[in-house]
Computed example of a mutant assay.
Amino acid sequence: MRATTAWPEGVIARYLTRAAELLHDPELTVDVAKGPEKSTATCLGCGIRFSKWAYETSAVKHWAQQHAEKCRALPRPTA
């Protein structure tokens, strides 16, 4: 399965969620972004966010991978 769009600006890691695997939807991911003060993981399925200080990026990546392995949530429809 290949992503159909480019990663958003600032994203340094991306993990495919369980829902993405089941539905073959490469857009259901947990994205990790590193800012000047905080590193943040955001699930594009359920919307949950997790953040730590920027120097703790590895902890945020670890959380993102663990969450992605279990998350079966679908994003809320926009229409």
Rank of each mutant, 00 (worst) to 15 (best):
M1E: 02
M1C: 07
M1R: 09
M1W: 06
R2Q: 08
T4Q: 08
T4N: 08
T5V: 14
T5A: 11
A6Y: 03
P8L: 11
P8W: 05
E9D: 13
E9G: 03
V11L: 07
V11M: 06
V11W: 06
I12D: 04
A13C: 06
R14W: 03
R14N: 10
Y15P: 05
L16A: 05
L16D: 06
L16E: 12
T17S: 14
R18G: 02
A19F: 01
A19D: 06
A19P: 03
A20C: 08
A20R: 03
E21S: 06
L22I: 11
L23W: 00
L23K: 00
D25S: 03
E27K: 07
E27Q: 12
L28I: 14
T29M: 13
G35I: 00
G35V: 00
P36Q: 04
P36D: 13
P36K: 10
E37F: 09
E37D: 11
S39M: 04
T40G: 03
T40S: 06
A41F: 00
T42R: 15
C43P: 10
C43K: 10
L44F: 09
G45P: 04
C46G: 10
G47C: 01
G47E: 04
G47Q: 08
I48H: 12
I48Y: 09
I48V: 15
F50I: 06
A54Q: 12
Y55N: 14
Y55C: 05
T57W: 02
T57S: 12
T57Q: 07
T57K: 03
T57A: 11
T57R: 00
S58C: 02
A59G: 07
A59W: 02
A59V: 10
V60L: 04
K61A: 11
W63H: 09
A64E: 01
Q65K: 15
Q66C: 05
Q66L: 12
H67K: 09
H67I: 03
A68H: 07
A68C: 08
K70D: 11
K70L: 14
K70Y: 03
C71P: 05
C71N: 08
R72H: 03
R72Y: 01
A73C: 11
A73Q: 09
A73K: 05
L74M: 14
L74W: 01
P75K: 10
R76V: 15
R76T: 15
P77W: 04
P77Q: 08
A79Y: 12
A79S: 07
